[in-house]
Computed example of a mutant assay.
Amino acid sequence: MLKRLRAFARHLGGELLALSLAARDPRTPWPARVLALLVLAYALSPIDLIPDFIPVLGQLDDLLLVPAGLWLALRLIPPQVLADARAQAAAQPTRLARSAWGLALMLVLYALAAYLLWSWWAHRS
Rank of each mutant, 00 (worst) to 15 (best):
M1D: 09
M1H: 08
L2E: 14
L2G: 14
K3P: 00
K3E: 15
R6S: 11
A7C: 00
A7D: 14
A7G: 06
A7H: 08
A9P: 00
A9D: 13
G14S: 13
E15L: 13
L16H: 09
L17F: 02
L17P: 04
L17A: 15
L17Q: 14
L19I: 08
S20D: 14
L21Q: 00
A23E: 00
T28C: 14
T28H: 01
P29M: 09
P29E: 05
W30L: 11
P31S: 11
A32M: 06
R33P: 05
R33G: 03
V34L: 15
V34G: 04
L35Y: 12
A36M: 00
L38C: 12
L38K: 00
L40M: 10
A41V: 08
A41I: 09
A43C: 12
A43V: 08
L44H: 06
L44W: 04
S45A: 14
S45F: 02
D48W: 06
L49N: 05
L49R: 03
L49F: 13
L49E: 01
D52L: 10
D52Q: 10
D52S: 12
I54F: 12
V56F: 15
L60C: 08
L60K: 03
D61H: 11
L64C: 06
L64H: 05
L64R: 04
L65V: 15
V66Q: 07
P67I: 11
P67Q: 09
P67T: 07
A68E: 00
G69L: 06
G69W: 06
L70R: 12
W71K: 04
L72D: 02
L72K: 01
A73T: 05
A73R: 06
L74R: 14
R75D: 11
R75W: 09
R75N: 10
L76E: 02
L76Q: 02
I77T: 05
I77P: 01
I77G: 01
P78C: 07
P78R: 06
P79K: 05
Q80A: 15
A85V: 06
A87L: 11
A89V: 02
A89D: 06
A90T: 09
A90I: 01
A91V: 09
A91S: 14
T94Y: 04
R95Y: 08
A97I: 01
A97R: 15
A97T: 11
R98E: 10
S99L: 11
S99D: 03
W101Y: 06
G102C: 04
L103A: 12
L103K: 07
L107R: 10
L107W: 06
L107T: 08
L107N: 01
V108S: 12
L109V: 14
Y110T: 04
A111N: 05
L112D: 04
L112Q: 07
L112W: 13
A113W: 01
A113Y: 04
A114S: 10
L116F: 09
L116D: 03
L117N: 08
W118E: 03
W118M: 08
W118Q: 05
W118G: 08
S119M: 10
W120H: 13
W121M: 13
R124G: 13
R124D: 08
R124T: 12
R124C: 03
S125Y: 09
S125I: 09
